[in-house]
């Protein structure tokens, strides 16, 4: 009898709170953006045409609905600038996520195999950069990568190059910045799955004739796939929409979609096209999110 009462009163409100949060801070703003993306620029902005005015009655709202158009989305598809920047965003995200996985996996694996008391130290070291502002860290990279920066000085001192290398405003600099910034997001989920793996599984594999290397490929790696999935999505999705790192470290010869959004909003002040680009980006990112959700659900079912 009392067991049922747990979900009454304040507890029920607490259960609703996340949904309320989602509606207020995600769905409602998204509704605004969606509406703007279907609108046209007016001379004085905002508002954008058509305007929804509930005081004008039902007929006016019906007319306003009829005036919404997909013109902005048609522009996105027809203009090379937008299509190329979407493609570039995807390529950059795929390449940097792959590099992140290649670097992050060994680090996470090493961390998980450390003695217990050193694991928390290693964890601390991964998190410590977060204590400094992200922008300051990126500016520090500009300093390191510039013509007479630390990297070129080291390369020259080691006689690996004979003249300073141009790093800034190149894709290399952007990839360095992306990998550096997102590495913790790759390491932490990988570490979480690797650390909870039962070491007796590896002993059992060893006992049954698998060499340590084979045991890694037959057990450790397949069992860490949920962590790989989490890390990949945690990096891939924000990198697709990344603005600051490409803007500060890469050249201006080709733009990522995040930069296009910035340009449309703040330089061109064309909010409808910018909103359409944002909505398109979201639609682009939904499939990987759904995929991740399915993977996680399968993992949960497997754990039962």
């Amino acid at each position: 009898m009392s067991a049922r009462r747990i979900f009454t009163g304040p507890a029920r409100l607490a259960a609703i709170a996340p949904y309320l949060w989602m509606v207020l801070f995600f769905l409602v703003p998204f509704g605004f953006v969606l509406k703007i993306s279907l609108s046209q620029t007016a001379i004085a902005q905002p508002p954008y045409l058509p305007v929804f005015d509930p005081t004008q009655g039902f007929e006016a709202i019906k007319a306003a609905f009829a005036a919404l158009s997909l013109d902005n989305f048609k522009l996105l598809v027809s203009d090379h600038l937008y299509v190329l920047s979407y493609l570039r965003s995807l390529v950059v995200a795929v390449v940097s996520t792959s590099i992140l996985l290649l670097i992050g996996y060994p680090i996470a694996y090493g961390m998980a195999r450390l003695p217990q008391r050193w694991q928390s130290v290693a964890m601390m070291l991964v998190i410590v950069p977060f204590w400094t502002s992200f922008l300051i860290r990126i500016y520090a990279w500009i300093n390191i990568l510039q013509h007479d920066g630390l990297l070129n000085q080291i390369l020259l001192a080691l006689h690996l190059v004979s003249a300073p290398v141009v790093w800034l405003s190149t894709d290399s600099a952007m990839y360095i910045g992306l990998v550096y910034s997102y590495l913790p997001f790759m390491i932490l989920p990988l570490y979480a799955t690797l650390a909870k793996m039962d070491p007796s599984l590896l002993e059992a594999a060893n006992d049954l004739g698998a060499s340590p290397l084979r045991a890694f490929w037959l057990l450790t790696f397949p069992l860490s796939l949920p962590g790989v999935g989490a890390g990949v999505l945690l990096c891939f999705i924000p990198i697709v929409g990344e603005f600051v790192i490409p803007d500060l470290l890469a050249g201006s010869h080709s733009l990522m979609i995040g930069q296009i959004l910035w340009l449309e909003f703040f330089t061109n002040k064309d909010w409808p096209v910018a909103s359409a680009a944002a909505v398109a980006l979201l639609i682009l990112l939904v499939p990987p999110l759904l995929l991740y959700d399915r993977l996680q659900r399968r993992q949960l079912e497997g754990a039962r």
């Binding site: 039962d198 007796s200 599984l201 002993e203 059992a204 594999a205 006992d207 057990l219 069992l223 497997g302």
Partner: peptide
Amino acid sequence: MMFQNYALFP
């Protein structure tokens, strides 16, 4: 060896 927690491959 047969392990105490069985160590079956999940």
